[in-house]
């Protein structure tokens, strides 16, 4: 792990698609006038027969992707997560999930990536929305290396999935050769006092918080829950049993996301003190991601503070 290097998840995603396109001629990328924001320009130029531009029409793009998949294509439909997961939510439910089509819905610039663009462009409800649609897998990679690995796995898998990534460059959590199993959490740090479960960009901040806690003699286990659905039940229950309390952190509403998923599991199987950190149920103020993470208390310092509060509840 290199704590200072950064990389772009969306660039890692599209570079991987470009590597895979010649190997898998059925691989198609569909987009919504978003080849710039997804960084699909090179794919569009090099693989025009595997690229489909639908214009600014998210509903159409998802349904057309399902139609393409029904003719044997392996489709990645890509666009800003805010539009792709709300405007075309019914298309995801019906044409992708219910029809069990081989469509991967890939939302870029998710979470608070668009910062000052305002509430129309925030994506803080996508995990909640898509998580309760049967057949849908939900993935939130935390860095470029993980995005690359997961993109490859999605391309080699048949069936629906949703993957969300951010817009800006993010700190590297993993080395380029790291491997992942979809559905299995990745333990990044061992600890016995509490467990911090994070996904997406929050993983790096969770590690920062664990460092800070360590300086105070508190040992936090850190789990990268890049697969929010299907949730790694085993890792969550083990963490609850062995560390006695759980803190979740996500770039998502505090309702219905990773925290919700973990809470649903724990309350029915092994209740322990828990804290769900994320974005409040209110109109998010404007700023860049870093400013907003700090403001809403989900940066390293904020998570550390949350952990100390949680530990007071631990018996």
């Amino acid at each position: 792990m290199n704590t200072s290097a950064k990389g772009s998840c969306r660039r890692a995603f599209t570079d991987t698609l470009c590597e895979l396109a010649p190997i898998y001629p059925q691989l198609n990328a569909v987009t919504t006038d978003a080849r710039g924001s997804v960084t699909l320009e090179r794919f569009a130029q090099e693989f025009p027969q595997q690229f489909v531009e639908m214009g600014i029409a998210e509903q159409d793009a998802v349904s057309v992707s399902a139609g393409l998949a029904l003719t044997g294509k392996n489709v990645f439909v890509c666009g800003p997560a805010c539009f792709l997961t709300t405007r075309s939510l019914e298309q995801v439910k019906v044409d992708v999930a219910y029809n069990h089509t081989n469509v991967k819905v890939v939302g870029v610039s998710g979470g608070l990536s668009y910062g000052p663009l305002g509430a129309t462009h925030t994506t803080v409800t996508d995990v909640a929305q898509i998580r309760c649609i049967f057949n849908m897998m939900v993935l939130l990679p935390c860095d470029a290396a993980q995005t690359k690995a997961l993109t490859r796995q999605l391309a080699e898998m048949t069936g629906p999935a949703y993957m969300r990534m951010g817009r800006g460059d993010v700190y590297d959590v993993y080395t380029p050769d790291a491997t992942f199993t979809i559905g299995k959490a990745n333990q990044l740090r061992e600890g016995t006092d509490l467990t911090i479960i994070a996904c997406g960009e929050m993983v790096w901040y969770a590690l920062q918080a664990a460092e800070k806690l360590s300086a105070q003699g508190i040992h936090a286990r850190v789990l990268d829950m890049f697969t929010v659905k299907p949730l790694d039940r085993e890792a969550v229950l083990k963490a609850a049993q062995e560390t006695g309390c759980i803190l979740t952190v996500e770039e998502h509403s505090i309702y219905g996301g990773l925290g919700g998923a973990v809470a649903e599991l724990l309350i029915q199987n092994h209740p322990v003190p828990m804290k769900i950190m994320g974005l409040p149920d209110e109109d998010i103020i404007l700023g860049n991601s870093q400013e907003l993470f700090t403001y809403y208390g989900i940066d390293g310092d904020g998570i550390c503070k949350g952990a100390l509060e949680l530990l007071k509840q631990k018996r």
Partner: peptide, 24 residues
């Protein structure tokens, strides 16, 4: 071939099918 029931889905799905078949 395809689950339907919510209106406004069939034509876009059919466009996707026709495009896939055209390209093949």
């Amino acid at each position: 071939e395809v689950c339907t029931g919510s209106l406004g889905h069939g034509l876009p799905v059919a466009v996707g099918m026709a495009l896939g078949m055209q390209r093949d």
